[in-house]
């Protein structure tokens, strides 16, 4: 079980405000704006309650730890903490052996780099690696600067 893994528990306790909601028993005005259709779902919210990333169902601990980086990265991106977002996405993108999250992480790492620098060249440097390493991924198909 993911939440019984010590690494997962430590990461959640150190980096997030953990919130548990019952889709049908908690107040509708809390749950409905979150747009959850399937349970369980893990959401990453900013301090205004906006959903910045959503992940349906359970994941094994290693994949869940990557998800924590991605979700935190998306919140950082929307808070204009571009340096922090870059670090989180890059960490997942460069993990060895490659994680299934890597193509997505490369994509958003490039976006975070661009938002920090406004440089198409720097964006292209990241996305080029994505296209070379994961050419058949959906994320490589999206990563076109031409």
């Amino acid at each position: 079980m993911t939440f019984s893994d010590e690494r997962v528990r430590a990461a959640i306790a150190e980096r997030f405000v953990p919130l548990s909601l019952d889709l049908f028993r908690d107040p509708r005005e809390w749950v409905r704006p979150l747009g959850v259709l399937w349970t369980p779902t893990v959401l990453f919210l900013d301090c205004r309650g906006a959903v910045r990333y959503a992940s349906p169902d359970f994941l094994p601990p290693d994949l869940f730890l990557d998800l924590l980086d991605l979700g935190e990265g998306h919140v950082a991106l929307h808070w204009a903490r571009f340096g922090e977002a870059q670090q989180l996405f890059r960490r997942v993108a460069q993990r060895e052996p490659a994680t299934p999250w890597a193509p997505e992480a490369f994509y958003w790492w490039g976006v975070a780099v661009y938002l920090a620098t406004r440089s198409r060249d720097e964006l292209e440097q990241v996305w080029r690696i994505l296209r070379e390493r994961f050419p058949d991924s959906l994320w490589a198909a999206r990563a076109r600067t031409d």
């Binding site: 953990p18 919130l19 019952d22 809390w30 349970t39 779902t41 900013d46 301090c47």
Partner: peptide, 30 residues
């Protein structure tokens, strides 16, 4: 130790105060 809050407004207030994201686990009983 993870202490799961059960109250959305309190979680958002804490997130604002601590400048941390909220990790919301949405489930259903049964």
């Amino acid at each position: 130790m993870v202490v799961w809050l059960r109250d959305l407004p309190s979680a958002l207030e804490q997130a604002q105060h601590e400048r941390r994201p909220v990790l919301a686990y949405v489930w259903k009983d049964g």
